[in-house]
């Protein structure tokens, strides 16, 4: 098996462990879009949300120099694409009330029909988007 898959699995276990700590400790669903979106909506638990985000941003900052090769995002330099994608992700995750972590990780693991359906739909939509833009129109 390729090392990348093992790193993926190890990283996944840490993500799930974080979600388990958040659920069993605070009784909350660990969803990235929900935690950030709650700040945008000026919802409750502001300090909890901010300290969660401090961990999400701070830990990669501290750990990344220890890794070889250092992970890069390889994000497209086409700024119009970046803005369009960001807007779609922001609107979509809030309208659907969840993203990969909330619907995907926390929803599927409790066999939530909404989580399973959302995950199938966003993976399918992403797959169609890539297929059209890369293989049909040759844009990305």
């Amino acid at each position: 098996m390729q090392t990348e898959y093992l790193w993926g699995l190890a990283g996944g276990l840490l993500i799930g462990l974080g979600a388990a700590v958040y659920l069993l400790g605070n009784g909350r669903i660990m969803g990235a879009s929900g935690i950030l979106g709650g700040l945008v909506d000026k919802s409750d638990r502001t300090v909890e949300r901010l300290s969660f985000l401090a961990g999400v941003i701070g830990m990669p900052f501290l750990l990344r120099p220890l890794l070889s090769p250092q992970p890069e995002t390889h994000l497209t330099s086409n700024i119009a694409v970046v803005i369009a994608a960001g807007l779609l992700v922001g609107v979509g995750t809030r309208v659907a009330n969840g993203c990969t972590s909330g619907h995907g990780v926390c929803g599927i693991s409790r066999f939530s029909m909404r989580g399973i359906v959302a995950t199938i739909v966003y993976i399918a939509a992403g797959g169609v988007t890539i297929a059209l833009l890369r293989h049909v129109w040759g844009l990305i």
């Binding site: 994608a85 779609l88 979509g92 659907a96 966003y122 992403g126 797959g127 833009l133």
Partner: peptide, 8 residues
């Protein structure tokens, strides 16, 4: 919408 942005 999320999936489209994610793919983009």
């Amino acid at each position: 919408m999320f999936g489209m942005g994610w793919g983009l």
